[in-house]
């Protein structure tokens, strides 16, 4: 059952990614990327990480993709790639290097020793969001606060970068 769900979701994720890569319109790209993010959030659920599922949906599929769509439509930058590429050999070289990267990462990723996936009581405790929350607010409290600071800096940066009437 899990395997069937995995394969369906994997096909959706790869389709979304490839469609994002090939579609000429940036709005379509953003929507296909949204499909891919949603599929990955389902993957998190299959991997018994329900908290990350919720975070992925709200932060990535919600906030980040809305930001992307908003900027694409604000700039009107849907189609800019009419002119041919300036470097002629870039495209075949990129495909070649991409293929090499895929082969290498598959070999490395599958080369390690694999233990059978855990089941039962330990997995139930692992998938409980409470254990993640406890870890976040005890052992990783300082990184958590630093993250809040990073978000504050991001807010200030966005405001400064988009001030009107002032040259940076």
């Amino acid at each position: 059952m899990d395997l069937i769900l995995f394969f369906i979701t994997a096909v959706i994720a790869i389709t979304g990614a490839v469609a994002m890569l090939v579609s000429r319109n940036a709005v379509h790209s953003a929507l296909f990327l949204l499909l891919n993010f949603t599929a990955i959030s389902v993957m998190y659920l299959l991997l018994s990480a329900p908290f990350l599922f919720a975070i992925q949906l709200t932060v990535y599929a919600g906030a980040i993709m809305v930001l992307f769509l908003f900027v694409v439509m604000l700039l009107g930058a849907e189609k800019v790639e009419d002119a041919p590429d300036r470097i002629a050999w870039q495209q075949p070289l990129a495909l070649l290097l991409g293929l090499a990267l895929l082969v290498v990462s598959v070999v490395v990723g599958l080369g390690g020793a694999t233990t059978p996936p855990p089941v039962g009581e330990a997995l139930a405790q692992f998938s409980d969001p409470r254990s993640l929350g406890a870890l976040l607010f005890t052992e990783y409290l300082l990184p958590f606060e630093v993250t809040g600071f990073i978000l504050l800096i991001a807010v200030i940066g966005v405001v400064v970068l988009n001030q009107r009437g002032r040259k940076i």
Binding site: A17, S29, Q90, L95, L101, L102
Partner: peptide, 14 residues
């Protein structure tokens, strides 16, 4: 998925 992302960075110009 990572390879598709790399190809996107290398191939697209938008």
């Amino acid at each position: 998925l990572f390879t598709i992302g790399v190809l996107g960075v290398l191939l697209r110009r938008n």
